[in-house]
Design a protein around this nucleic acid. Structure first.
Lengths: 279, 279
DNA sequence: CGCAGTGTTGAAGAGCCTCAAAGCTCGTGG
DNA sequence: CCACGAGCTTTGAGGCTCTTCAACACTGCG
């Protein structure tokens, strides 16, 4: 059913996310030749994400705290793995630019893509708390993450109740989204799933200001979407073909041309969620 | 596909969880004729849940804080609804005794059971933060919940960093479990799903000390399990029949007689998770 | 007794998976 | 320069899993 690459230790461009050769990817182009973890001079104060309407504002105190709490940045090339399922984690992250995915393997090699990783998403928290990463995280395009240290996690709660509250909010929002995914996998059939997924993806990326007209960058392969929706690659392809009148996806660009048709198909009412905190 | 009862406002025994007439249920028998929300004299100090090995210990400070933070208890009869998807929530809860479920509806009436609610589970937090319940919660047996007030949520973070940390842990653990469900719905076929679910259910309830030999109380209907696993009722029935040599479920009692066979089928390695916090 | 909810079983058909193969693009090496 | 291979997309055909429809048995209750 799935690629079944597994393991391999996270070497250079190991192709965990079926993106083996292309060193650069449109829509993410970030600094070249940077060390994997470098303390950058500027940080949260100038972060472009914070000003997006989807995110709530920081208080000055929160901003100061995060500036200090942040360890640095982690850079990933397309195809590289941030960490593997089962790894012990000393760090956790907020995605800043680029796109990736988190996925789990079954013992038979099948892969389930749990969720895509878009800018603003915090990942690795569960792994930090339980001392073992719940899933593998890999980059589909070049990515930049803000990095935080596990051992300082207590400081959040001790020094910045606001940030502690934000952390619960972020985790609870993720839980909510996963429950929607469960409903989709459990109740919708292939075309509905696909319509639902394309809409959700398009919406999430649009909210981040990544849309150009009706197009958003989506640098994945059909296999990735197949593993996300629990469909075979072949059937994913055929389903995409069916929906081509309403949405086109090629060369890493997703275009939704008939939102209404898709949301009818997906049985989804698109209501604007309230702004959420950013870590 | 599903029952499609929806709405009805949470009246007496409205049968949201297909449990319409039976007023009492084995395995949960709690006080009769109690008002739905009553401040009980004793509380956390004597709570039987806290001493279970699955849960981490409270510090004296945490215990004192929770005693004060707790508003009271909420009692539910089998079949009653705690709250509906979309409701604005002023309270959130930790299940104390009995069993229930959280589920979502699609616009066509299909229902997805997102997760079962067992003692120790905290629910409603997402609803409190986002000001709208993400799913409906209903009781399958008589239930008792500890009740907390939304407006005092900040106090957790301001006054008890330990409890704030615990809250993140609890939410992250739930997120992790939902991601396992996603992998199950996306990658496993009917028999594997069923084996996986029966094992997980049995394990969770055993860890809570609810097992008598190889039997645990599980007061649901086949329809509930069908809606949880994304299978039709008919196929759920037939799949259960297939697994009958390894697990029997009747009259609200689930018995797992061949754990090994089920875990092989489910491709699941049952490792003991670390103790988790309780709210 | 009739009725409603639940569990069970059979049969037919749809949806999706698997197997197979071909076209495309891009990078590599002769 | 072109041939070749690797990875991705696309298409077709056959078959299995699961759904849907239908019917019947059992239970507890009005």
């Amino acid at each position: 059913m799935a690629a079944g690459v597994r393991g391999s230790g996270g070497g250079q461009g190991a192709g965990q996310l079926t993106q083996p050769r292309v060193p650069k990817q449109p829509g993410a182009g970030l600094g070249d030749d940077l060390p994997p973890l470098s303390a950058m001079p500027s940080a949260c104060a100038t972060c472009a994400l914070r000003s997006k309407p989807v995110f709530t504002d920081f208080t000055p105190h929160e901003l100061a705290f995060m500036e200090d709490f942040r360890v640095g940045e982690t850079h990933l090339r397309a195809g590289e793995v941030l960490y593997h399922e089962g790894d012990a984690l000393d760090l956790f992250y907020t995605a800043k630019t680029g796109q990736g995915a988190r996925y789990k393997y079954l013992t038979n090699g099948d892969r389930q893509l749990v969720n895509f990783v878009f800018p603003g998403d915090t990942i690795g928290l569960q792994g930090v708390l339980a001392n073992e990463a719940a899933y593998t995280v890999a980059a589909a395009s070049d990515m930049v993450f803000c990095t935080f240290r596990r051992t300082r996690l207590n400081e959040i709660f001790a020094q910045s109740p606001d940030r502690g509250y934000a952390l619960v909010w972020i985790t609870a929002a993720e839980e909510h989204f996963l429950s929607e995914i469960i409903a989709t996998l459990g109740q919708r059939k292939a075309q509905q799933r696909m319509a639902w997924a394309l809409l959700k993806i398009h919406r999430r990326l649009s909210d981040l200001g990544l849309a150009l007209g009706d197009a958003v960058p989506f640098p994945f392969r059909q296999r990735d979407l197949a593993d996300a929706l629990g469909l075979s690659l072949v059937h994913t392809n055929k389903t995409l073909a069916c929906l081509r009148p309403h949405a086109q996806w090629q060369d890493g660009i997703l275009r939704v041309t008939n939102t209404r048709a898709l949301s009818d198909l997906a049985m989804l009412n698109q209501d604007q969620p309230p702004p959420r905190p950013l870590l």
